[in-house]
């Protein structure tokens, strides 16, 4: 009995290790099915993506998100990147500002995604970053907003890989003091942190608290007054826009990403749409 166990244990170990070892990826096989990766319904990135690519079809006031039902649904930009980075046959989309070397961004209609191409509007998939405030804004919050929309604030936006939206406003520190609470989208908060740093350097008596959750929670908080400024990585919904005023602070491209082993370099908008709507199922039709 004991002897059997002494044999069985190493064998089981060997099988386990074999399983891990056998995950060596093979060469890219064009005949394989595309693993389409999408974000969860309600995500700002998904909302912007389906709208800009025409996957969201509007007919007679009806809106249908035609993203293929076979798409893997993944929550969060980082999770999409790690999934695409680990699956040679995956395609996904993420905020351009979050892009890193773990995945490969491909051109759309021959245009490389970058801050420059988003700015001159040649890159077709770009969205606004919004902040939202109530009609009555405290002087301090208004001062921070003035800073964001000034050349100094917009420079911070550009330095972090996003695209500026306004030019020509100058900002003079007013030396106010007090506290600003900002809440909302996790896509917007990285750039908001940088704006906060730059603003505090000019106004050391101000305290800014940034709560990162998501677009909808940020809008609710702004509406209920639990925060001064809400952040959204999408346009405001009708129910939100009645109480809140949206201000565009930056633009962000949505990069189409594939695995680094994927030979694909460019995709046309039409092909991208067909991939995401499930009409094209295999890489053969996409990769030359």
């Amino acid at each position: 009995m004991t002897k059997n166990i002494l044999i069985a244990f190493p064998v089981a170990c060997a099988i386990m290790i074999g399983m891990i070892g056998c995950n060596e990826p093979l060469a890219f096989d064009k005949k394989r099915e595309i693993s389409v990766v999408t974000r969860e319904a309600g995500s700002g990135t998904r909302g912007a993506f389906v709208e800009l690519t025409g996957i969201l079809v509007k007919v007679d006031g009806k809106k249908t998100d035609n993203t293929t039902k076979e798409a893997l649904t993944i929550d969060g930009t980082q999770a999409v990147m790690s999934n695409v980075g680990g699956n040679e046959y995956a395609i996904g989309y993420i905020s351009l500002g979050s892009l890193n070397a773990s995945v490969k961004a491909i051109s759309v209609n021959g245009v490389t995604p970058s801050a420059a191409t988003v700015k001159d509007a040649t890159y077709p998939i770009a969205r606004p970053f919004n902040i939202a405030v109530k009609d009555s804004v405290s002087p301090l919050s208004q001062d921070f907003i003035n800073f964001i929309l000034s050349d100094a604030g917009q420079k911070v936006v550009e330095e972090n890989g996003y695209v500026s939206v306004v030019q020509g406003n100058t900002y003079e520190p007013t030396k106010l003091s007090g506290k600003i609470v900002i809440a909302g989208s996790s896509s917007v908060s990285p750039v908001m942190e940088k704006l906060k740093e730059a603003y505090l350097a000019l106004n050391p008596n101000v305290e800014i608290e940034i709560q990162t959750n998501d677009s909808s929670a940020g809008m609710v908080a702004a509406k209920e007054g639990t925060c001064d400024i809400g952040m959204a990585s999408r346009e405001l919904k009708e129910s939100e826009a009645t109480d809140l005023r949206a201000i565009v602070i930056a633009r962000d491209g949505i990069a189409i990403v594939v695995n680094n082993k994927n030979p694909l370099k460019n995709i046309t908008m039409a092909t991208l749409r067909e991939v995401y709507m499930g009409a094209i199922r295999s890489w053969e039709a996409v990769v030359e």
């Binding site: 399983m19 891990i20 056998c22 995950n23 093979l26 099915e33 790690s82 680990g86 699956n87 995956a90």
Partner: peptide, 18 residues
């Protein structure tokens, strides 16, 4: 699961592995 099992299933059984 995501690091070991998903690639294993994708490589040997097909599909996306998830």
């Amino acid at each position: 699961g995501i690091v070991v099992m998903v690639p294993f299933v994708r490589t040997y059984f097909g599909g996306s592995g998830s």
